[in-house]
Computed example of a mutant assay.
Amino acid sequence: MDWQAGLLDGIAAQDTPEACFLLIADHAADIGFEFCTHGMRLPVPITRPRTTMHSNYPSAWLQRYHEQGYMDTDPTVAHGMRSSSPLVWSDAFFANTPQMWAEAQSHGLRHGWAQSRRDAEGTYSMLIMARSEGPLTDAELSRLTPRMQWLVHAGHEAMKASGQDPAREQGAVELSDREIDVLRWTAEGKTSAEVADILNISERTINFHINSVVAKLGACNKTSAAVRAAMLGLLW
């Protein structure tokens, strides 16, 4: 399809998240959505994962959304965190957040579609497309869902490639096979002595590998290193 080739070519030409988002928003507009938001959450740091958001929603709504802390109760966000199934906005979907739903509609955000994606490295993103007029019909969804889902995946990869990739931020960490073995057992709660018995090597060697991965991952201890490596997809 020409739109796929055009999007891929456009993505390859961008080098910032902002430029990539403008391209995503343009394609959303091409299929009938005047508003678009793309959010991405990196898997590290574990206790305060960095979240970025790009949006062309009305500025007054974005300010209100932030001031009221609606992200904490937004059912679209909650759905995306627990499921990668696409969703269509409806009165029933926002039944538990009537004030937020009424305010969103007053700013022109009346009909929407969203889907999230979480990749092997633990990076999570969600694409939301919305418009002020015309509900999404079954016929329209049947025709557009493949393209919308393709945009979800292309947008995710575009944002990572444009500088929001946790592997890049982690300095493209490379662990040896032995270091990965040691971390896997450490993640299972084994002590250095137990891992030494399992792998049939000395405890001193185990501790050497642990110290190495702690340094490579910028962690404070072996538990932190094991969790960080798992979140970055290094223990597969």
Results as ranks from 00 to 15, higher is better:
M1C: 04
M1W: 05
W3T: 12
Q4D: 05
L8G: 03
A13Q: 11
A13G: 02
A13P: 03
Q14H: 03
Q14I: 00
D15Q: 03
D15K: 03
P17N: 13
E18R: 08
E18C: 04
L22Q: 02
A29F: 03
G32S: 13
P43F: 02
P45N: 05
T47V: 14
R48L: 08
R48V: 07
P49S: 14
N56M: 05
L62F: 00
R64N: 06
Y65G: 05
D72C: 07
D74L: 02
P75Y: 04
H79S: 11
P86A: 15
V88A: 10
A95M: 03
T97G: 01
P98V: 01
Q99D: 15
G108W: 00
L109E: 05
R110L: 09
H111D: 05
S116Y: 06
S116Q: 08
R118F: 11
D119H: 10
G122Y: 11
Y124H: 15
R131C: 09
S132F: 01
E133T: 13
E133M: 12
G134R: 05
E140G: 08
S142N: 10
P146L: 06
P146W: 10
V152I: 14
G163P: 07
Q164H: 07
R168V: 15
E169K: 13
A172T: 07
V173Q: 08
V173L: 11
R178W: 12
D181W: 00
V182F: 04
L183I: 03
R184H: 05
R184F: 00
T186R: 11
G189T: 03
S192T: 11
E194H: 04
I198T: 15
N200P: 03
E203T: 13
I206Q: 02
F208D: 10
H209F: 01
I210C: 09
A226R: 03
R228G: 08
M231D: 12
M231W: 05
L235H: 07
W236L: 03
